[in-house]
Simulated scan of single mutants.
Amino acid sequence: MDYLDLPKAVEDFVAATNAHDADALAAVFGDGAAVRDDGKTYTGEAEIREWTQGHLIDPKIVITPTSFAGDRLVASANGEFPGGPLSFAFVFGIKDDRVTDLAIDPV
């Protein structure tokens, strides 16, 4: 894979996800952040921690970025879930090197 030049917040999100590090993932998100995934919205630290645990940490997700343009990361995700690997688009809102908004959709 070619090197992708990712914003720090996106790079931190991928690294923390791939390390299965809940505290590092929590640190990626800014105050008042929101995540939209699976038709639901998770807001605030407690809900985002619950989402990261259930959707990224427990299934041991590993994200392999394939492209990045504007605010949209396309990546393959694999882990302990049926049907993987799957491709997803991660659309990031970023402020001060922290994720303020994240929307995830299958590609």
Rank of each mutant, 00 (worst) to 15 (best):
residue 29 F to C: 08
residue 94 I to P: 06
residue 61 I to S: 02
residue 33 A to C: 05
residue 28 V to W: 01
residue 5 D to R: 07
residue 99 V to R: 00
residue 35 V to G: 00
residue 26 A to D: 14
residue 22 A to K: 13
residue 36 R to F: 12
residue 32 G to C: 12
residue 98 R to N: 07
residue 87 S to T: 13
residue 8 K to W: 02
residue 94 I to F: 10
residue 89 A to M: 11
residue 12 D to Q: 07
residue 12 D to G: 07
residue 71 D to F: 03
residue 17 T to N: 04
residue 77 A to T: 04
residue 28 V to M: 05
residue 82 P to R: 13
residue 33 A to D: 01
residue 63 I to Q: 03
residue 67 S to C: 03
residue 79 G to N: 10
residue 25 L to M: 13
residue 43 T to Q: 12
residue 40 K to M: 10
residue 24 A to H: 02
residue 80 E to I: 07
residue 34 A to F: 11
residue 12 D to V: 01
residue 59 P to F: 09
residue 38 D to P: 02
residue 3 Y to M: 09
residue 61 I to G: 00
residue 36 R to Q: 12
residue 2 D to Y: 02
residue 73 L to M: 11
residue 25 L to N: 06
residue 52 T to Y: 07
residue 39 G to M: 15
residue 34 A to C: 08
residue 34 A to S: 15
residue 63 I to E: 00
residue 3 Y to W: 02
residue 83 G to H: 05
residue 74 V to C: 09
residue 38 D to V: 10
residue 39 G to V: 14
residue 89 A to G: 07
residue 76 S to R: 15
residue 18 N to K: 12
residue 35 V to Q: 00
residue 49 R to K: 15
residue 33 A to L: 04
residue 70 G to K: 08
residue 64 T to I: 13
residue 4 L to R: 01
residue 10 V to C: 03
residue 63 I to K: 04
residue 19 A to Q: 09
residue 22 A to M: 12
residue 27 A to R: 12
residue 67 S to V: 06
residue 12 D to I: 03
residue 33 A to T: 02
residue 40 K to V: 05
residue 45 E to A: 15
residue 4 L to G: 01
residue 93 G to T: 11
